[in-house]
Amino acid sequence: MNFPLMPDQASNFARPYDALFFALTALTILFTVIVGALVLYFAVKYRKGNRVDRSGAVESHLGLEITWTVIPLILGLVMFWWAAKLYVDTRQPPQDAMEIFVIGKQWMWHAQHANGVRENNELHVPVGVPVRLTMISQDVIHSFFVPQFRIKQDVLPGRYTQQWFIATKPGKYNLFCAEYCGTQHSEMGGYIYALPPQEFQKWLASGGDKKRPNQPTMADLGKQLYDRLACGNCHGSQDSPRGPSLYGLYGARRRMTDGSIVEATASYIREAIKNPYAKINEGYQNTMPEYRELTEEDLLNLIAYIRTLGTSKAPGPVLGNAMPAQIDGGNR
């Protein structure tokens, strides 16, 4: 049996976060020792019967009070600033981050790579490449926790949350669910495999652990769903009276009927499919049916497909008449 003292430092977050952790640890030990030593020293020195000078004790001293108010305050503010700055600086993922989708459910993690490779309770990532996780829960609140990466993010039902990281060291790391989620909470975990980039590409191309290459990609699956649900009847390649085009939607900023401007993020698109009346584009009626029966996986595939429709409007056929095949053209 070994007794480890710290987890591996295996991501870009580990070193800066640990530096802060050790600084706080030093502060804790310093103050504990100061207070402990003073208390014990005074208590022993001034124990009953010990002949020491007790004269001139005061019962308040403004200078002392100010000193021990201001010093902890300044130290606290310094620590706050350090921690907050570190957090803010490392919050935004790089634009070119590789995206992986994660669904949490009682009691497993399901991950989907863009090319269609799926994994359960395992996640393969390349070393040295920024990875962005877009996560959602199918039931209760979970929390995606990789101690060796120093990352943790709650995974909520009904809303996407994001977490990013760069793995810095090849290896096998723990994946835990950190938010209590029911009976098998402690078994909702697995491993993260950080692979050297070439090895990862090979792994991904060969279809992952199940060795099923050339699976339909998430976008392909989204496209199938888009066709099956006949989304194109209203959302063609150009805006129609029935609905706005989905071309160039992802990441665009749209004005809603209530005057607000909304950015078309994954969360927005998800809500627009499941719950179309929550926000309605300016100039449109609330005529879209609710697709409440779609699973989180379906929704992720649809969003992946919508993302492939690009960020600028594509030329297309007549209004409201877009055939799915035509939408397909030129954008893939």
Binding site: F13, P16, Y17, L20, F21, L24, L27, T28, F31, T32, V35, G36, V39, L40, A43, G76, M79, F80, W82, A83, A84, L86, Y87, T90, S143, F145, P147, R150, I151, K152, Q153, A178, E179
Partner: peptide, 30 residues
């Protein structure tokens, strides 16, 4: 009382780890 002071100091100071946004990410729910 001596025990209280010793333990409370440790308890209070370790709270600073959890009030710090970055270290809290790693330490919360552990």
């Amino acid at each position: 009382v001596l025990g209280f002071i010793g333990l409370f100091v440790v308890g209070g100071l370790t709270g600073l780890f959890l009030a710090a946004m970055s270290t809290d990410v790693h330490l919360t729910d552990t």
